[in-house]
Write a protein that binds this DNA or RNA. Sequence first.
DNA 1: CCCCTGACGACGC
DNA 2: AGCGTCGCCAGGG
Length: 109
Amino acid sequence: MTTKTSFFQDVYEVVRLIPEGRVTSYGAIAEFLGTKKSARMVGWAMNQAHTLPDVPAHRVVNRNGVLTGKHHFVPPEKMQQLLEKEGINIKNDQVQDFQKHFWNPNQIL
DNA sequence: CCCCTGACGACGC
DNA sequence: AGCGTCGCCAGGG
Protein backbone atom coordinates (compact mmCIF):
# COMPACT_ATOMS: atom_id res chain seq x y z
CA MET A 1 0.00 0.00 0.00
CA THR A 2 0.97 3.58 -0.23
CA THR A 3 0.43 3.99 3.44
CA LYS A 4 3.15 4.99 5.81
CA THR A 5 3.00 1.65 7.46
CA SER A 6 6.10 -0.38 6.93
CA PHE A 7 6.46 -2.47 3.82
CA PHE A 8 6.41 -5.59 5.92
CA GLN A 9 3.19 -4.65 7.61
CA ASP A 10 1.52 -4.16 4.27
CA VAL A 11 2.71 -7.54 3.09
CA TYR A 12 1.21 -9.23 6.10
CA GLU A 13 -2.11 -7.51 5.58
CA VAL A 14 -2.32 -8.71 2.01
CA VAL A 15 -1.32 -12.25 2.91
CA ARG A 16 -4.03 -12.32 5.53
CA LEU A 17 -6.55 -11.57 2.79
CA ILE A 18 -5.65 -14.68 0.82
CA PRO A 19 -8.74 -16.90 0.96
CA GLU A 20 -8.43 -20.47 2.11
CA GLY A 21 -7.67 -22.82 -0.72
CA ARG A 22 -6.09 -20.07 -2.79
CA VAL A 23 -2.50 -19.08 -3.43
CA THR A 24 -0.71 -16.06 -4.77
CA SER A 25 2.80 -15.08 -5.74
CA TYR A 26 5.41 -12.82 -4.24
CA GLY A 27 5.40 -10.77 -7.41
CA ALA A 28 1.64 -10.30 -7.30
CA ILE A 29 1.83 -9.01 -3.76
CA ALA A 30 4.72 -6.76 -4.62
CA GLU A 31 2.82 -5.39 -7.57
CA PHE A 32 -0.22 -4.80 -5.42
CA LEU A 33 1.93 -2.82 -3.03
CA GLY A 34 3.29 -0.82 -5.92
CA THR A 35 6.76 -2.29 -5.76
CA LYS A 36 6.60 -4.92 -8.45
CA LYS A 37 10.35 -5.08 -8.78
CA SER A 38 10.74 -5.80 -5.12
CA ALA A 39 9.23 -9.24 -5.02
CA ARG A 40 12.30 -10.26 -3.08
CA MET A 41 11.33 -7.95 -0.28
CA VAL A 42 8.00 -9.74 -0.04
CA GLY A 43 9.79 -13.00 0.48
CA TRP A 44 12.08 -11.31 2.92
CA ALA A 45 9.09 -10.05 4.84
CA MET A 46 7.67 -13.53 5.04
CA ASN A 47 10.64 -14.42 7.15
CA GLN A 48 9.10 -12.55 10.02
CA ALA A 49 5.61 -13.64 9.08
CA HIS A 50 5.92 -16.79 11.12
CA THR A 51 6.22 -14.63 14.21
CA LEU A 52 2.77 -13.19 13.58
CA PRO A 53 -0.64 -14.89 13.80
CA ASP A 54 -2.99 -15.30 10.87
CA VAL A 55 -0.30 -14.91 8.26
CA PRO A 56 -0.71 -17.91 5.94
CA ALA A 57 2.72 -17.76 4.37
CA HIS A 58 2.12 -21.22 2.95
CA ARG A 59 -0.31 -19.66 0.49
CA VAL A 60 2.44 -17.61 -1.04
CA VAL A 61 4.52 -19.24 -3.74
CA ASN A 62 6.65 -17.95 -6.57
CA ARG A 63 5.27 -17.06 -9.98
CA ASN A 64 5.73 -20.65 -11.13
CA GLY A 65 3.57 -22.02 -8.39
CA VAL A 66 6.58 -23.66 -6.78
CA LEU A 67 6.87 -23.88 -3.02
CA THR A 68 10.19 -22.11 -2.93
CA GLY A 69 9.82 -21.11 0.68
CA LYS A 70 8.89 -24.49 2.07
CA HIS A 71 12.35 -24.90 3.49
CA HIS A 72 11.55 -22.14 5.94
CA PHE A 73 8.74 -24.09 7.53
CA VAL A 74 9.10 -26.53 10.37
CA PRO A 75 9.08 -29.11 9.21
CA PRO A 76 9.47 -28.17 5.54
CA GLU A 77 6.66 -30.52 4.60
CA LYS A 78 4.31 -28.40 6.67
CA MET A 79 3.77 -25.97 3.83
CA GLN A 80 2.62 -28.66 1.45
CA GLN A 81 0.52 -30.28 4.13
CA LEU A 82 -1.35 -27.08 4.86
CA LEU A 83 -2.01 -26.47 1.20
CA GLU A 84 -3.23 -29.99 0.52
CA LYS A 85 -5.41 -29.70 3.58
CA GLU A 86 -7.06 -26.74 1.89
CA GLY A 87 -7.72 -28.75 -1.23
CA ILE A 88 -4.68 -27.77 -3.26
CA ASN A 89 -2.77 -30.57 -4.95
CA ILE A 90 0.99 -30.42 -4.82
CA LYS A 91 3.25 -32.46 -7.04
CA ASN A 92 6.99 -32.29 -6.69
CA ASP A 93 6.82 -29.04 -4.73
CA GLN A 94 4.67 -27.49 -7.40
CA VAL A 95 1.05 -26.39 -7.15
CA GLN A 96 -1.15 -28.23 -9.63
CA ASP A 97 -3.63 -26.08 -11.54
CA PHE A 98 -1.76 -23.09 -10.18
CA GLN A 99 -3.67 -20.62 -12.29
CA LYS A 100 -6.92 -22.14 -11.14
CA HIS A 101 -6.07 -21.57 -7.48
CA PHE A 102 -4.25 -18.32 -8.05
CA TRP A 103 -5.62 -15.36 -6.18
CA ASN A 104 -4.70 -11.91 -7.33
CA PRO A 105 -4.69 -9.22 -4.62
CA ASN A 106 -5.65 -6.69 -7.24
CA GLN A 107 -8.96 -8.39 -7.83
CA ILE A 108 -10.27 -7.20 -4.49
CA LEU A 109 -10.07 -3.63 -5.67
C1' DC B 1 28.95 3.51 6.71
C1' DC B 2 30.17 -0.46 3.67
C1' DC B 3 29.28 -5.17 2.50
C1' DC B 4 26.57 -9.23 2.21
C1' DT B 5 22.44 -11.81 1.98
C1' DG B 6 17.84 -13.20 0.33
C1' DA B 7 10.80 -17.25 0.56
C1' DC B 8 11.75 -13.24 -6.72
C1' DG B 9 11.43 -11.95 -11.41
C1' DA B 10 12.67 -10.26 -15.92
C1' DC B 11 15.96 -10.38 -19.52
C1' DG B 12 19.95 -11.93 -22.15
C1' DC B 13 22.65 -15.37 -24.45
C1' DA C 1 13.99 -23.76 -23.97
C1' DG C 2 17.42 -23.89 -20.25
C1' DC C 3 20.97 -21.51 -17.64
C1' DG C 4 23.39 -17.32 -16.10
C1' DT C 5 23.16 -12.36 -14.65
C1' DC C 6 21.33 -8.25 -13.09
C1' DG C 7 18.00 -5.35 -10.81
C1' DC C 8 15.72 -4.18 -6.45
C1' DC C 9 15.87 -2.85 -1.64
C1' DA C 10 15.45 -3.63 3.42
C1' DG C 11 17.99 -5.52 7.50
C1' DG C 12 21.71 -7.14 9.87
C1' DG C 13 26.78 -7.65 10.84
